[in-house]
Nucleic acid binder design. Structure first.
Lengths: 290, 290
DNA sequence: TACGATCAATGCTTTCAGGGTATCAGATGG
DNA sequence: CCATCTGATACCCTGAAAGCATTGATCGTA
C-alpha cells in the first residue's frame, strides 16, 4: 500500500521508487504485482505518462485511511506500553471516596489524560480479592497489614470519631472516653467485610477491657450511618466521613482515638504500565497530607 | 498484523501458526520480531500459557480495525473496477431534464446504488467539450451527427413545437404552417450554443425558402421561454418542454415539424467502468420510448 | 519423585521473494 | 532523425523467512 501511495502521489515510477528507497525496476514489478493480486488496473500508463484509473483514485482514499490507522495503531500500542494511554481499574472503599480518591483521580487524569480510569467502589475484602484476581489494577483501602505480593503507598492516617443522634445522652459531652461506651449499642461493619476497621474498633475497646455491644453488623458504611440516624446505636467511623452526614447526627472526638492507615495498593507484579505513575501520584499526595 | 491477530485470538502458538498455514517455529519468530519492531511486549508467555498484555489487548482492537478496513479497501477497489461502485459525472442539456434524464437517473440509481451520480446541466456545446476533455463521463444531448470518438445511444425523438403568448395573432390557429411565420420575430439559441437545435430550426425555414427573423439569441432555453412570455417573439422548442411553461404561454403543432434525436453519449475510450451499465440503461429506455 | 506430555524457543538448513544492474522499447521534442 | 526520458524485461544474487530437529521449561500423573 505504501508503494501504491508513493506512485499515486508522484505519478512517476522513478521518483516513487526513490521515495521507497529502491530502484525503479523492482518498484515497477511491485506495482504490477499489486494490480495482479487485486485483479484491478490501478494506473493507466504508457512510456510517457502515468495516471490513476477511477478504481485507483478510489483505492488511494482507502489506502490513505488504512495507512493512517496503521500508523496510529503502532503509535498507540507504544503509548499503552509506556503507561501514557490505556485503562486503569481502581477499586476503593466508600470511606476513601470522601477523602483522598477525588484528589487522586483528578491529579492522575491531569497527568495521564489518555488513561481511562474505571472506578469501582467495593468493600475492603472484595478489594483484596479483586487485587489478587487481577480484576483491579490498584485500590485505595485500609492497610490490613501483611501483603507481600502487594506494593503499598500510605496516603493518609485517619482517626475514628464516634457518631450518634444529636438527641443521644452523650451528645452533650465534648470528648468521649471509651469507658463511657461500655453500655452503648455499637453498630460496626463485620470483620469479614472490613477487617482493618473492625479490628481497630475491637482493639480500642479491648484495651480498656471492654467488650462492645455490637448490635448490628451492616456491610456498607452507608447503612451504618442510616442506622445510627434511626437511633439504633452509635458507630465509630473515619473522621473524613463525619462531615455532611445530614441533619440529626453529630460526631465527637474519641480519647486515644484509633488510627487507620489509608493506603494505595497494587499487585507487585502488575502488567499494567499505567499503574506506576498512579503510585507516584499516591506518594505525592502522601507528602502533602501527612 | 494477521499473525498477531491469530495469536491474540487463539492464545496458542501452534494453533495460530496452523491458522496462518505455517509451522510453529517461524511463527514464534514472527511474533518476536513484531514485538522487537514495535519495542513493546504484546504477549506474556511462558512454556505453559500465553496471555495478552494490556498493550496487546489494545493493539488487538486497533488491528481488527486496520485489517477490516484493509479488506474493505480491497473489496471496494474491485467493485469500482467492475462499475458497481464509484462515481459517474453525467452532463445533460436543459431540455433533457424535463424528459428522459429523471427516468434514466432513477433506473441507474436502482441498478447501481453505490455509484454516485454527479449531475451537471450544460449547453450542448459545453457538453461536447467536456466529453472530450474527460470532465464528463456521459451526457444526454442532441445528436449533432459526426462524432467517431463517442459512443451514442438514441434515447428519444422529439418534434419541435412553436410557443407564443396566448394573445398572439397566431394563437387562434390549431396547426401552423411555416409560411405563416415569414413575418414573425423568432427567438432561438445561437448555433454556437446549440448547433443541432439551431440548424434544425434554420433548415425548417430554409426548406420553404424563408429566412427567419431571429431577433434574439439567448444561450439558455430558460431565457428563451421568458422572452416569449414578454411578447418579444415566438420560439421553436422541443415538445417535452411545452408542458408547464406557466400561464400566458401556449404551444402549437408545426406542419412537418422538425425532429431532433436525443442521445446518450460517452467517450469510446472511457476509463470509467460505471459508464457501460449506464449506456445499457439508455438502450432499455430507447426500446420503451420509441 | 521421576517420567511423559505439552508447548514455546533456538539452531541449522534451504529456498524463493524481492532487490540490484543492464538493457530494451516506446514516446516526445528539438 | 537523433537525443532523451520513462516504464518494462531479463538476469543475477542476497537474505528474509520457512521447515525440521531439538532444547528447555512446566505441568500432570503414576
Amino acid at each position: 500500500m505504501r508503494f501504491f501511495m508513493a506512485l499515486a502521489e508522484t505519478l512517476h515510477f522513478g521518483r516513487a521508487a526513490e521515495r521507497m528507497n529502491m530502484s525503479q525496476p523492482p518498484f515497477s514489478r511491485q506495482i504490477a504485482m499489486i494490480e495482479r493480486t487485486l485483479g484491478v488496473k490501478l494506473f493507466e500508463r504508457n512510456s510517457r505518462s502515468v495516471a490513476l484509473t477511477p478504481a485507483g483514485k478510489h483505492f488511494m482514499e482507502d489506502c490513505r485511511n488504512v495507512l493512517g490507522q496503521f500508523e496510529d495503531a503502532c503509535r498507540d500500542v507504544r503509548l499503552v506500553a509506556s503507561g501514557m494511554k490505556g485503562e486503569l481499574r481502581l477499586g476503593f472503599m466508600m470511606h476513601a471516596a470522601h477523602s483522598v480518591v477525588p484528589e487522586l483521580v483528578q491529579l492522575y487524569a491531569k497527568a495521564r489524560p489518555d488513561v481511562r480510569l474505571v472506578l469501582d467502589e467495593r468493600t475492603p475484602t472484595e478489594i483484596d480479592e479483586m487485587l489478587v484476581a487481577g480484576t483491579l489494577d490498584a485500590a485505595v483501602t485500609f492497610d490490613c497489614g501483611y501483603a507481600p505480593h502487594l506494593q503499598t503507598v500510605l496516603l493518609a492516617r485517619e482517626r475514628l470519631r464516634i457518631i450518634m443522634r444529636e438527641d443521644h445522652p452523650l451528645a452533650t459531652v465534648g470528648q468521649i472516653y471509651p469507658e463511657k461506651l461500655r453500655e452503648e449499642k455499637v453498630i460496626a461493619a463485620p470483620a469479614a467485610t472490613a477487617p482493618a476497621l473492625r479490628s481497630a474498633i475491637n482493639s480500642y475497646f479491648s484495651a480498656k477491657g471492654i467488650v462492645p455491644h455490637v448490635v448490628l453488623e451492616p456491610r456498607l458504611q452507608h447503612t451504618i450511618i442510616q442506622l445510627v440516624a434511626k437511633g439504633l446505636g452509635v458507630a465509630l467511623i473515619p473522621a473524613s466521613l463525619c462531615t455532611g452526614m445530614g441533619t440529626g447526627l453529630i460526631s465527637r472526638t474519641l480519647t486515644d482515638a484509633p488510627q487507620l492507615d489509608v493506603v494505595l495498593r497494587a499487585p507487585m507484579t502488575t502488567k499494567n504500565p499505567a499503574v506506576s505513575a498512579f503510585m507516584e501520584i499516591g506518594k505525592s499526595i502522601q507528602r502533602t497530607s501527612l
